[in-house]
């Protein structure tokens, strides 16, 4: 069976969620691997949420916000940009490939951008394979001689 990745998408309420909704209403073809979580603003996304998604078994995380300058809370998405830039560096050090974390601005009428982001991350993660967390608990037993 081919690998179907689990991808968590964090969408801001005002632009990105509306954009994603529009993609649905317009019946755009979009890979079904994404489960979305709505936030009021992408600036409310704690980096810990992304790490928690991986811990809970996600293979990739997509973060969407309004275009820069259009955030409904003025500069929430600048915060997102800074956090995600640093977070990408951090997860790379932890062996989580950069392609597993994607930041995409999606405006309320930008259904296409959303579809494209979903398809890109799905294909990238499919190519990478599952994000495997090691079974740490088992180690102690198996490494015994």
């Amino acid at each position: 069976m081919s690998f179907e990745p689990k991808i968590i998408a964090f969408l801001c309420n005002w632009c990105s969620y509306a954009g994603a909704d529009l993609a649905g209403v317009s019946r755009s073809k979009c890979s079904p691997n994404v489960m979305s979580i709505r936030l009021m603003c992408s600036g409310g996304l704690e980096p810990a949420f992304v790490l928690k998604a991986f811990k809970e078994g996600a293979d990739g995380v997509l973060v969407c916000g309004c275009n820069l300058g259009d955030c409904h809370y003025v500069d929430g998405n600048y915060k997102t940009l800074m956090r995600m830039t640093l977070l990408k560096k951090l997860v790379k050090q932890l062996g989580i490939e950069e392609e597993r974390v994607r930041l995409q601005w999606v405006c309320a009428s930008c259904a296409e951008d959303f579809v494209q982001a979903v398809n890109t991350i799905t294909n990238d993660v499919k190519a990478l394979g599952p994000y495997t967390q090691i079974k740490i608990e088992a180690e102690a037993e198996t490494s015994r001689i």
């Binding site: 790490l51 500069d75 640093l86």
Partner: peptide, 29 residues
């Protein structure tokens, strides 16, 4: 993750390129 969030909130820039340059100086996140 808490500290990472704090670092990101203290950066003063609205320019994508500049943001990247500033963050690149965090050599060992």
């Amino acid at each position: 993750a808490h500290f990472l969030s704090a670092i990101a909130s203290v950066i003063d820039s609205k320019d994508e390129e500049e943001i990247r340059t500033i963050i690149n100086d965090v050599l060992d996140p």
